[in-house]
């Protein structure tokens, strides 16, 4: 190989840089997020595991159903509690703090959903 003395160190530096995020956080994983749970009710509109993985899919379905298909505005949980299928008028009535609920996981997962560009978050009590 020509220029062995340049290529091999170069490759090592490159691999090191590319994998930097992996070994930088190795073993730690950071502080796990602890989203604050509502105090006024025990269950959400779907089981916690489902909510955790696919709440965004559900929000999309609500929107398409209500805005485009004339779908129902009210939903019912498994045990018969009624709720409003709406981010602002539904979800955020129980999860009253965006900071302590939404942002907790979103920041950890480094996702930046644009919900709040339009939807108005509840006033946070400082």
């Amino acid at each position: 190989m020509y220029d062995k003395d340049k290529i091999i160190p170069g490759l090592i530096v490159f691999v090191g840089l590319v994998t930097f995020p992996l070994w930088y956080g190795f073993g730690g994983g950071g502080k796990l997020p602890v989203p604050e749970k509502p105090t006024n009710s025990k269950e959400c509109v779907m089981p916690t595991a489902e909510m955790r993985t696919s709440h965004m899919v559900m929000l999309n379905q609500w929107r398409d159903d209500i805005v485009r298909m004339g779908g129902a505005r009210l939903g019912q949980t498994a045990d018969g509690t009624q709720y409003i299928r709406s981010l602002q008028k539904g979800c955020m009535k129980c999860h009253t703090s965006k900071k302590k609920f939404c942002d907790e996981c979103h920041t950890y997962a480094a996702v930046n959903p644009y919900c709040w560009d339009c939807h108005i978050q509840p006033k946070e009590a400082n």
Partner: peptide, 30 residues
């Protein structure tokens, strides 16, 4: 957002880059 004088928390605002118009208050009709 900065130009909405008094936010109605029951309805969203819009984001930049989209078109808007009267929707005959479909949300109130519902």
């Amino acid at each position: 957002r900065p130009f909405v004088k008094q936010e109605n928390p029951e309805y969203p605002t819009r984001m930049r880059g989209v078109v808007e118009k009267c929707t005959m208050c479909y949300e109130r009709l519902a």
